[in-house]
Design a binder for these strands. Structure first.
Lengths: 364, 364
DNA sequence: TTGTACGCGTTATCAG
DNA sequence: CTGATAACGCGTACAA
């Protein structure tokens, strides 16, 4: 069986298709045709190129709005080799500190006309590698990274270095890189906080630390040790626990303390983060110890929970927002040629941290 | 004055340029040339197209690795009209709930081969609009959005609807959209929690709510009211405070309660989030009221602070991780043609929420 | 001040 | 199974 389709019918069918709710993008060519000018002029006009007369520029912008034009970033990126996108690679997204960092970053990025692609390594080097590769493929204009718990080297960032794509480390930085790092004075803060505990009368101070592979934990440990030394207190391995600083790790630390012979128990604890500090506190409180009379506590980060626990936890106000904003602002300036991040091992240090000694009473 | 440049010199100069430390990308053409095959074949081989013989496919992959090839996503996106990027637009990045959502999203996105572009509206419609436009320009394959505090309509999402780019609402959804929404049973949870307070002996229960423009706060308010009604308790405007549910708002609520004549004071408070609940608690505790004997509390979200406050706060375990994973998984499936999100006003409801009644003692 | 012409790197189409 | 060729939408020398 055969169907005959008249030329006319065919034409109409075609028309119908052509007139269907357009699935084509509106391009600068459409605008150009609309205004009887060239696409090049439109392209320039859209970017406020001063070479284009004010009048035509205006017309172009209006036509663009009228036609519902939306610039195509790929085409643009393909041509200009700029994505206006920054990659952010963090260990975890869901900690108070990190989400503050991201909030600060997003704000600064937005202000500078950049977008953020965010990924988490979940503390796993392999995921970190994979994510780094993806970001590279996405041609981010720059990378901001805080290293995973067990990252040993940064070979996976070589592609960035080779292509001179700026990499900014923050918080958990890499010691031997030539990149810029945004950090706080972890050593100093730890020193201060430990000293504070000592001044409150603590003589046996325990430290809950993280993996010393990461600068933050290494520096905090060192600050703690130096403070002990400077005040004539001995350092003991028995009073130094290293863990992931999770809630469970805090609880575990409490158990450890309670199992210690009465005489060997610490009367002060400096934890490298608030979470571990607080769950350790809770463990001890549950066992009947008084805080801070029996054991005084200090943490790190100024997490919201530190203001809720009783008594309030002395802690270091480590502002994620600041870190995030500083990191992005520096990177954006670099990309816009305002500064140059590639001075060897350039370290930008935020020194606005405050030790909050909220309710720890002097035990002298 | 004229310079004469010999053909030879010119050629050498050109050579020098060509041999300069390559700043050109390695493309599929380079691979093609390397293997004496066509770029088309390389393109196919790289994507494991079964039409290409296993042998050549292998060779292609090897050559790619050898030459250090990195696919150019723009070029690919420009051609294929797919970005493998999803836009996420949230009110704020730095709340425990939202960062959990993002963590869940990132995980699911990664698993499905998508990247996330994340932006925050800071509870401001205007920023929401601007961000939506950017995401559209970046040609995200789909948009996930939780509305700002004061968003009235969703006209700014029209571009997405017009182009049939899937939009998924989550948490703070839009009632009259034809899009899929990922929500929990806010009404039911509020009803349950309020009932719980009533069963503990509370007769005058206050509600700290948010802007009823947002479904979450509206539904929680209604669940609260229905529970009162079903248990023969009167509803009173005096016991309903609406705010941003911030720390300050919680403190403010405490002040409000304390200023109330003794007889009009609530003996129970249901807050639409944990933060306000806890700062209200703290305010009352400071004033000498006993929790829960004088005033019992219940919150919403299962924020970490709810496990730290004393006594522990009864709350609704609203899992951001689940919401995030569900949202992305559904969107990804839709994009891959597994399901279709565009059933009118399709609502995907997570019902795995649990009311944790940790330490609230029966006051009968 | 504006237009012409070409290429960015990939994928789709069609032809072998 | 593979190759040639034409887009995709934009930016930019160069020319006018």
């Amino acid at each position: 069986m055969h169907f005959f389709i008249s030329e006319k019918l065919f034409f109409f069918g075609l028309q119908a298709i052509i007139n269907m709710p357009e699935d084509r993008e509106i391009t600068i060519y459409d605008i150009a045709k609309h205004l009887n000018i060239s696409a090049a002029t439109v392209s320039r006009g859209l970017k406020n190129n001063p070479m284009i007369s004010k009048n035509t520029r205006k017309k172009i912008v209006e036509a663009a709005k009228e036609l519902g034009y939306q610039s195509n970033t790929f085409a643009s990126s393909l041509r200009s080799r700029q994505t206006h996108t920054l990659g952010v690679l963090v260990p975890r997204l869901n900690s108070h500190f990190m989400s503050s960092v991201l909030a600060g970053m997003e704000k600064a990025a937005n202000r500078n006309g950049y977008n953020l692609i965010i990924a988490q390594s979940l503390e796993d080097v392999e995921k970190e590698k994979a994510n780094a590769a993806t970001m590279f493929n996405k041609r981010v204009d720059g990378l901001l990274i805080s290293l995973a718990y067990n990252t040993q080297d940064i070979n996976h960032l070589e592609p960035f270095f080779n292509r001179k794509i700026p990499v900014v480390f923050f918080d958990r930085v890499y010691a031997h890189s030539n990149s810029t790092s945004i950090v706080i004075d972890n050593y100093g803060a730890a020193y201060k906080v430990t000293t504070h505990l000592i001044e409150q009368g603590c003589r046996r101070i325990m430290h809950l630390g993280g993996n010393v592979l990461r600068n933050v934990y290494k520096d905090r440990l060192e600050g703690y040790r130096q403070a002990l030394k400077d005040h004539g207190l001995p350092y003991s391995d028995k009073l130094y626990l290293t863990s992931t600083l999770s809630e469970d790790a805090g609880t575990e630390a409490a158990r450890y303390i309670l199992e210690l012979p009465q005489k060997e128990r610490p009367n002060g604890v400096f934890s490298a983060n608030d979470t571990a500090a607080i769950y350790c506190m809770i463990g001890l409180k549950t066992a009947g110890l008084r805080i801070p009379e029996d054991v005084a506590f200090a943490g790190f980060n100024n997490d919201p929970i530190s203001k809720v626990i009783e008594p309030n936890l002395t802690t270091v106000d480590y502002s994620g927002n600041n870190i995030g904003e500083t990191a992005i602002t520096n990177l954006a300036n670099h990309l816009q040629g305002v500064n140059n991040l590639y001075m060897t091992n350039n370290i930008i240090l935020r020194s606005d941290l405050i030790v909050r000694a909220s309710s720890l009473k002097n035990k002298s």
